[in-house]
C-alpha cells in the first residue's frame, strides 16, 4: 500500500523527530556538563594520577569518531548484559562525548585566571577548596560561558550521528521519509533547515556573548 505524503505530512513528521533531537541534546548537555565538571576537577586536581587519567579520557574522546563511541557504548553495554535501547545508548554516548569536550574547554578557562589570583588567595590563608569556590571558579565561569554556548551547537549536530544506531531523531526521520516519499531533495532540505533553526540562534548568541565579554574585560 502506498500512502501519499503531502508537504505538511513531511514537515509534521520531521517536527516529531526534531523533538527527539532536542530532548537528546538537552540530556547530553546537562548530564555532560555535570560529568564534565567532575572530569575538570580531576584534570586540575593536585593528584598526578587523576590528572593523567582525566587527560587520557579527554584525548580518547577528542581523538576518536563520535560514531565509534556510540557503537562501543551500544554494543559494549549489551555485552555487559544490560539491554539498551538506541535512545539510552545515544544519551550515554553523547553525554561522555560532551563531558570530555566541556572539561577541556573549562580547563582552558580555569587556567586563564591569572596566577596572581591563586597567590593572593593563598596569602589570605585560603584552602584549595576555598580558593576554587570563592576566587577562581567565579572568574573562570564568566570566561567559560561564551565557548560553552558555542559548544552546544556541536552537541546538537552530534545528535545526528545517533540516527546511525537507529535512534529516530530528526535525521533518521528524514531518511525514512526520503525513502517513503522519493523526495530526498526536499526532505533533506527541510532536515537541514531544522538543524539550522536549532543551531543558528545558539551560534549568534555565543558570538554576542563573546563580544560582550571582550568589551567588559
Amino acid at each position: 500500500m502506498f500512502t501519499q505524503f503531502s508537504t505538511w505530512d513531511i514537515v509534521r513528521n520531521l517536527l516529531e523527530g526534531g523533538k527527539w533531537t532536542l530532548a537528546l541534546t538537552l540530556i547530553a548537555f546537562v548530564l555532560g556538563g555535570i560529568a564534565g565538571l567532575l572530569v575538570l576537577f580531576a584534570r586540575i586536581a593536585g593528584s598526578r594520577l587523576l590528572q593523567t587519567a582525566s587527560k587520557a579520557y579527554i584525548e580518547v574522546f577528542q581523538g576518536t569518531p563520535l560514531l565509534m563511541q556510540l557503537f562501543i557504548v551500544f554494543f559494549g553495554l549489551s555485552l555487559a548484559g544490560v539491554d539498551v535501547s538506541p535512545w539510552v545508548a545515544a544519551a550515554i554516548g553523547l553525554t561522555l562525548f560532551t563531558s570530555a569536550y566541556l572539561a577541556e574547554i573549562w580547563r582552558g578557562c580555569v587556567e586563564s585566571v591569572s596566577k596572581g589570583q591563586w597567590e593572593a588567595s593563598a596569602s589570605l590563608a585560603m584552602r584549595y577548596t576555598e580558593q576554587m569556590r570563592y576566587v577562581i571558579l567565579p572568574q573562570a565561569l564568566r570566561i567559560a560561558i561564551p565557548p560553552t554556548v558555542g559548544f552546544s551547537v556541536q552537541v546538537v549536530k552530534g545528535t545526528a550521528v545517533a540516527s546511525i544506531i537507529g535512534f529516530a531523531e530528526l535525521t533518521k526521520t528524514g531518511s525514512m521519509l526520503a525513502n517513503a516519499t522519493f523526495q530526498p531533495f526536499m526532505v533533506f532540505g527541510f532536515v537541514a533547515l531544522g538543524y539550522f533553526f536549532l543551531c543558528y540562534p545558539l551560534s549568534l548568541y555565543a558570538k554576542h556573548l563573546e563580544r560582550k565579554f571582550h568589551v567588559a574585560r
Binding site: I164, A192, Y195, F196, C199
Partner: peptide
C-alpha cells in the same frame, strides 16, 4: 557550520 555533516552528506548524495 550550523548543520550536521551527516545531513550535508545525505543532501549531496540523495538529494542532488
Amino acid at each position: 557550520r550550523n548543520t550536521p555533516f551527516l545531513v550535508q552528506l545525505f543532501f549531496i548524495f540523495f538529494g542532488l
